[in-house]
Simulated scan of single mutants.
Amino acid sequence: MEARHGVMGPGVRRAVTSRVNSDDTLRIEWPEPDDGEIVLRNVETGEEREGADLTGLRAGIWMASHRGEPLATDDPGFSLDGLLAYAETPRTREIRAFRTSGGTLGLTVREVKPYVEVTGVQSDDGVIEVEGLIAYGPPIEGPATLVAVARRGPEPVSGPAAFHRRRFEGSVRIAPMAATQVRRRVFWDLHAEVGGVRLPLAARLDDVTDKKARVRFPAQYVERVRVRPYYTESDSLAVALTVEEESS
């Protein structure tokens, strides 16, 4: 069966809701009962899969069809609360529903590893404080550390942190980072560390694109060293330390 993706025929029915449940099943809600089978097609390989069970779906983009036509949907596929709930389950593969520009349903399947989803950042009074939630990993309880790892040169700098099941909170002082500054600019990546395992800090569940350019945190100063948290191109949380030139 060859679905005409993005081209909707005159008799196409439109789903009200199209979401991926935490058990990796596709939940479709129609305005009225419907018993038609959903078919998924991998846009790269052409592989097809019938039904709502998404277990074992290979990584890539899949388009949904219904009765031989692209599945139209009113659901934008985004709910931060829903994605946070989905991330509570330990998993190695994430499946997200999305609505194409043509109003049809697609799925993105990608490999994932546990990390800390950042929910709050405060940069003030010589300290960077971070709050977050464990994504795709099991709950953790107890003390931890917030570790800043320089991409080149200086040894890691750490501060106190703790896990309270899924919730994480930690802080790191900026003075020890600035004290190691030997180049004009140094970048530090932030991690939560517990039991010798480092979990990256990142913000990947919301719908904010291009965070590196659009999200700005306040800068702090240690003498001439400007310290500013920022998001990388992969939405990881990092810190840039820059020696500012003296004004003439």
Rank of each mutant, 00 (worst) to 15 (best):
126 G>K: 08
95 I>Q: 00
63 M>L: 12
190 L>P: 07
160 P>T: 07
245 E>L: 11
121 V>F: 04
235 D>E: 08
93 R>L: 06
108 T>V: 07
21 N>L: 12
247 S>E: 08
26 L>Q: 03
31 P>L: 07
19 R>K: 11
163 F>R: 05
214 R>E: 14
38 I>C: 11
141 E>Y: 12
165 R>Q: 15
179 A>M: 05
185 R>Y: 00
241 L>A: 07
197 V>W: 00
198 R>N: 04
126 G>S: 09
235 D>L: 05
173 R>K: 14
18 S>Q: 08
206 D>I: 10
150 A>S: 15
148 A>M: 09
232 T>C: 00
85 A>F: 10
182 V>F: 08
65 S>F: 04
25 T>Y: 10
106 G>L: 09
242 T>Y: 03
177 M>E: 08
107 L>S: 02
55 T>S: 13
43 V>W: 03
24 D>F: 00
41 R>A: 09
181 Q>M: 15
153 G>N: 03
8 M>C: 12
168 F>R: 03
95 I>M: 06
192 A>M: 06
136 Y>C: 01
48 E>L: 06
199 L>V: 12
69 E>Q: 15
76 P>D: 15
77 G>K: 03
227 V>P: 13
138 P>M: 00
193 E>Y: 01
156 P>Y: 04
242 T>V: 11
166 R>G: 10
98 F>E: 03
149 V>C: 05
229 P>N: 14
71 L>E: 09
212 K>T: 10
161 A>L: 06
72 A>S: 13
163 F>V: 07
171 S>L: 13
6 G>Y: 00
224 R>G: 01
126 G>H: 08
22 S>A: 14
88 E>N: 13
232 T>R: 13
72 A>W: 04
185 R>N: 08
204 R>V: 00
59 A>I: 03
84 L>C: 10
160 P>E: 15
242 T>N: 02
180 T>E: 13
147 V>H: 06
71 L>Y: 01
162 A>F: 12
2 E>V: 14
190 L>A: 13
194 V>G: 02
31 P>R: 10
93 R>N: 02
52 A>T: 14
